[in-house]
């Protein structure tokens, strides 16, 4: 019955890069006041590229899986490139997300955009 693709369940049950960095260069926090989902994204930057990414947060399976996946997606990519990161890339990397829950899946991307804009 699950509309949750295997990749979502996997990232939700086994989150990657969860936790905090000791000295992050960029931090972005985003919350959804409707359900209390919260994601904090921390980036370590070297030579204009993401050297390390961590997330912390709580909320539904989709938002937390998307945050976990995002920490893998940004790895090694330049900040300039990440500024243009499209919603579609995240949604398809998650194996597709049911329409009613896109907002949850895109919460970590909004946290990333805040981090890149220098707005914690």
């Amino acid at each position: 019955m699950s509309p949750y693709e295997e990749v979502i369940l996997d990232h939700w049950r086994n989150p990657r890069n969860k936790g905090r960095l000791s000295a992050p260069d960029l931090v972005g926090v985003e919350v959804n006041p409707l359900c209390g989902d919260a994601v904090r994204l921390e980036l370590k930057v070297a030579d204009g590229k993401v050297a390390e990414a961590r997330f912390d947060g709580e909320g539904c399976a989709i938002s937390q899986a998307a945050a976990s996946l995002l920490t893998e997606l940004v790895q090694g990519r330049s900040l300039a490139e990440l500024k243009g990161l499209k919603e579609e890339e995240i949604l398809s990397a998650l194996g597709g997300v049911i329409e009613t829950r896109r907002n949850c899946a895109l919460l970590p991307l909004r946290a990333l955009r805040r981090a890149l804009a220098g707005k914690a």
Binding site: M1, S2, Y4, C35, D37, C60, A61, I62, C104
Partner: peptide, 8 residues
């Protein structure tokens, strides 16, 4: 999370 319950 309740949203996951409601979606399913």
């Amino acid at each position: 999370h309740p949203h996951d319950v409601a979606t399913l």
